[in-house]
Structure formats: structure tokens, C-alpha cells
């Protein structure tokens, strides 16, 4: 990055560190923080959407939808997260390849499963092995994102279902008295009021989601944990910047990052809660009303 970095062996200490901290691998380490933030930014709304759909299904008056919703919530919540994180991407990947295989290579007669091998015709590889590395990375990232959305969606579904049921019955009855339809009551009364009940659960879930992002590492995505371990390990003189075991400093940096993210979101949720409590028939809403009066 800097011209004087060409021969790191001869540099004074501060320049050595400057070069070391701006090496190609370190730039990748810094970029991986962006990967984690991007995952959070996409996984949270996706999980909320899954959760909302799951909650609606579980509360549906239509039996198959109700069964499906209950099954989704019970199944995902009942299996260790890590199992799901390992299972979902592999299942989607192989499922997708299986479908494309049958669509594109009907003349292929050899079996797909040959002993331990899972082999589809070359055209059915998803993504194509010839695809550029960013596409491969984006694909792996998307699979991880789906796994996160699926797992955290199930928890969110349960939270949202509980929140929908927590809205006082009297509020809904008022809507009925005005002659509103079921859909109108849901949109005009239940939906605006449920969030205040859902928020404590959702904020919990968000903190868990933040702390679960190192699972990316399990899925082979080069996240901050991967780079911290990789960069912190002992480096012999085969590397340009040899150093002893510095993992403790790298993991400390990762720890500070997570602490900063959870601390900042704690504050945001507190503000959001205040905002949502305004005018609500809850203790927090009452406290706000008193303070204003």
C-alpha cells in the first residue's frame, strides 16, 4: 500500500506496523467487518418477514396454514441452531443442483449419488465453477443469509404470535363494535399495537442474532473470526511480516466490535420502545402520559 513497504524486514517499528496493518490480508480482515454488518442488515428484516408470515400462519383460521406455521416454529426452535446452519445451506445447494440437473440434463443417465459423491452434470452446478469469485462468495453468503432468516424467523414468529395475542381483547372488541371486518381490525388496531409487546422479545432476538454472526465462519465464509484466527496465528519468516502468536489482540478487537454493536443497538431499542409506547394502554405508555402532563 505504501511505497516503503517493499522490504518490511528493514523498517523502523512504526512503519513496520503501518505496513503490516495495511497488508492485503488485513484489508480483507477490515472488509469482513462489512460482511458481518451486511449480514445483520439483511438478516434482520428477512427474519422479521419470516417471523411475520410464520405468526400469521400459526394464528390462521385455515387448518393447513395453522399446522404449517406451528410445525415451522416447533421444528426450528427444537433443533440446535448450529445443526440448522450446517443443514440448510447444504440442503438448498444440493436441492437446487438436483432441480437444475433434471431441467437441463434429461439425457444424463448416471445416478447423482454415487457412493459418497453427489454429482450433477456440469451445466447444473450452482453456481457454475467458472463463475467469478465474487459470484461464488455472493452465493455462499446468500445461503448463509437464508439459514439465518429461517432460524431467527422461527423465534420471531413465536414472539410476534405472542405479541398479537397480548393486545387487549377490549381494543379489538371496540373495532368489532364499530362494525370493522376482521382484516380491518387486524390492520387498524392489532398491527399498530402489537409492536410494543413484541419489542422486548425482538430486541433480545436481535442481540442473539448479532452474537450468532460468527457462525458464518462455520459455513466457510471468511468473516472476522476467520481472519482474526488466521492473522493472529504465529507467522514464521516465510511470511513478509513474521510475528509470534498475536491471536489475543485480534480476538480482543473482535470482542470490542461485538460489544460496540450490541451496546449501540441497546440504545436504539430503548429509544424505539419509548416511541412505540406513546399513547399505548401499557404501564410504559401511562408513564409517558404522566410525564407529559
Amino acid at each position: 500500500m505504501f511505497a516503503f513497504c517493499a522490504d518490511p524486514g528493514l523498517l523502523p517499528e512504526w512503519q513496520w506496523f503501518l505496513c503490516y496493518l495495511s497488508s492485503g490480508t488485513h484489508l480483507a480482515f477490515y472488509a469482513s467487518f462489512g460482511t458481518v454488518v451486511l449480514l445483520l442488515a439483511l438478516a434482520a428484516p428477512a427474519a422479521l418477514a419470516f417471523g411475520f408470515a410464520g405468526a400469521l400462519a400459526a394464528r390462521s383460521h385455515f387448518l393447513p396454514a395453522r399446522t404449517l406455521g406451528a410445525l415451522y416454529i416447533a421444528m426450528v426452535r427444537g433443533v440446535p441452531d448450529v445443526i440448522f446452519f450446517l443443514f440448510v445451506p447444504v440442503a438448498i445447494d444440493q436441492g437446487l443442483e438436483y432441480l437444475v440437473h433434471h431441467a437441463t440434463c434429461p439425457e444424463w443417465t448416471e445416478p447423482i449419488r454415487r457412493g459418497p459423491d453427489f454429482i450433477v452434470c456440469p451445466a447444473a452446478k450452482v453456481p457454475q465453477p467458472t463463475a467469478p469469485v465474487p459470484v461464488q462468495d455472493a452465493y455462499a453468503f446468500t445461503l448463509a443469509l437464508v439459514a439465518f432468516a429461517l432460524v431467527f424467523g422461527a423465534f420471531a414468529a413465536n414472539t410476534l404470535k405472542g405479541a398479537m395475542e397480548a393486545v387487549p381483547r377490549a381494543q379489538l372488541e371496540t373495532g368489532e363494535a364499530f362494525g370493522m371486518t376482521r382484516g380491518q381490525i387486524f390492520r387498524r388496531i392489532l398491527l399498530p399495537q402489537m409492536w410494543v409487546y413484541a419489542l422486548p422479545g425482538l430486541s433480545n432476538l436481535w442481540q442473539i442474532l448479532v452474537k450468532a454472526t460468527p457462525l458464518l465462519f462455520l459455513l466457510g465464509i471468511q468473516d472476522i473470526v476467520y481472519w482474526a484466527r488466521e492473522l493472529g496465528g504465529t507467522k514464521t519468516s516465510i511470511y513478509s511480516y513474521p510475528h509470534p502468536d498475536w491471536r489475543v489482540w485480534y480476538f480482543l478487537a473482535v470482542l470490542v466490535f461485538y460489544l460496540a454493536v450490541t451496546w449501540a443497538s441497546e440504545g436504539l431499542f430503548a429509544r424505539l420502545m419509548r416511541h412505540l409506547s406513546r399513547g399505548q394502554a401499557t404501564a410504559a405508555g401511562e408513564a409517558l402520559r404522566r410525564a407529559a402532563a
Binding site: V100, T104, P122, A123, A124, V126, P127, Q128, T130, A131, P132, P134, V135, A138, Y139
Partner: peptide, 14 residues
């Protein structure tokens, strides 16, 4: 790029 890669499925390059 992802869309292009998907579109190119089937036309196998080198």
C-alpha cells in the same frame, strides 16, 4: 454478475 452467471448456465466455457 449473479444474474449473468445464472443465464450462462448450460453454456459451459473452458
Amino acid at each position: 454478475a449473479a444474474a449473468l452467471a445464472l443465464a450462462a448456465t448450460g453454456a459451459s466455457a473452458q
